[in-house]
């Protein structure tokens, strides 16, 4: 039986832990995000989505609240880093990111035991690129562009989605903080008894 004071201390501890985790993960994502822009790619406007690796890991380990905080902070601060906050390109990046987060969150919550890391990551990449393509087609009011680029987008989503799913899995395995959503390991039953 815990006393009120202990319970409160535990509560504060867990909130501080969450805050620190979100802060660290955001920095991690930002580094990956900037790195992503620097890597030369066959099609420059389809990003690898390196930052999404961390988002997926957090969705699985730390829950959707922490993941959402990290994801959207990264999009916002990332736009400051790259320049172009609140420009049309930011809108493109933001809506793609939001859609991809939504799809991944739903997939992790409802489809995760059936789908693996790769499947969820692929769905996220697909949602991201699809949203951007639809917005571009709407802006140009030309659906031909969309029909023409759709297979390309699917191909690269497949490639990059598999890659980031694989990376996310191994990141979770190597960094238990991401896999559990805690900075300090929880006191296990066995350890508490000993």
């Amino acid at each position: 039986m815990k006393s009120g004071l202990e319970e409160r201390a535990e509560n504060v501890r867990s909130r501080v832990e969450k805050l620190s985790l979100v802060a660290l993960a955001t920095v991690f994502e930002l580094v990956l995000f900037v790195l992503d822009s620097a890597i030369p790619k066959p099609i420059p406007w389809i990003k690898i989505g390196l930052a999404n690796i961390v988002t997926l890991a957090l969705l699985i380990g730390a829950g959707w609240r922490a993941a959402a905080a990290v994801h959207f902070l990264r999009i916002l601060i990332g736009a400051v880093f790259r320049g172009g906050l609140f420009t049309p390109f930011f809108l493109l990046s933001f809506s793609g990111g939001a859609m991809s987060f939504l799809v991944m969150a739903v997939a992790v919550r409802w489809a995760m035991p059936v789908l693996g890391f790769v499947g969820v990551s692929f769905l996220g990449a697909l949602a991201h690129n699809f949203t951007q393509l639809v917005l571009v087609a709407a802006a140009l009011s030309d659906t031909t562009v969309m029909a023409l680029l759709w297979p390309v987008v699917v191909f690269f989503s497949l490639l990059y989605g598999c890659f980031s799913g694989y990376s996310s899995y191994h990141l979770c395995r190597r960094i238990p903080q991401l896999a559990t959503g805690r900075l300090i390991p929880a006191q296990t039953q066995a350890a508490a008894g000993a």
């Binding site: 890391f117 790769v118 499947g119 799913g165 896999a179 559990t180 300090i184 390991p185 296990t188 350890a191």
Partner: peptide, 14 residues
Amino acid sequence: RQWEFRLPKLFTFA
């Protein structure tokens, strides 16, 4: 204290 966690599978049939 030890890390204890179980991860979903990397790649499934689905």
